[in-house]
């Protein structure tokens, strides 16, 4: 049982590794960021698997925070990508 969960987690990690190639290659800043988001999502899944594996449900809090903060990071990234650094790419023509 628990071995299975961990095996799944390993697979997820491998997926994350693939996403990392995108982060490394780019070519665009957005590509990198999206790669990171993918790793983030994978990470949340891994945490959940680990929580299940350990039976330690407090670990779910980690997943929660990770997902929240991942969203936050992407907003920050979006802001950074805007022209003046304080705006919204959507505003730009």
């Amino acid at each position: 049982m628990s071995g299975w969960l961990l095996a799944a987690a390993v697979v997820l990690l491998a997926t994350a590794a693939a996403a990392l190639v995108r982060v490394a290659r780019g070519p665009d800043a957005a590509d990198r960021m999206m790669g990171a988001q993918l790793v983030g999502t994978t990470g949340v899944a891994v945490v959940i698997l680990l929580a299940a594996h350990e039976g330690n449900w407090a670990m779910l809090d980690v997943a929660l925070v990770l997902s929240l903060l991942a969203a936050f990071a992407s907003v920050a990234f979006v802001k950074a990508a805007s022209r003046d650094g304080q705006g919204d790419p959507e505003e730009d023509p």
């Binding site: 990470g43 891994v46 945490v47 670990m59």
Partner: peptide, 27 residues
């Protein structure tokens, strides 16, 4: 790119902490 990797890195380290059972630290 480095900074993005760093964010990813933080995330993975959080996984490590989780794996070690140090949930507070992982948080």
């Amino acid at each position: 790119g480095s900074v993005v990797f760093f964010i990813v890195y933080g995330l993975l380290v959080a996984l490590a902490w989780t794996r070690l059972g140090a949930v507070d630290v992982a948080l």
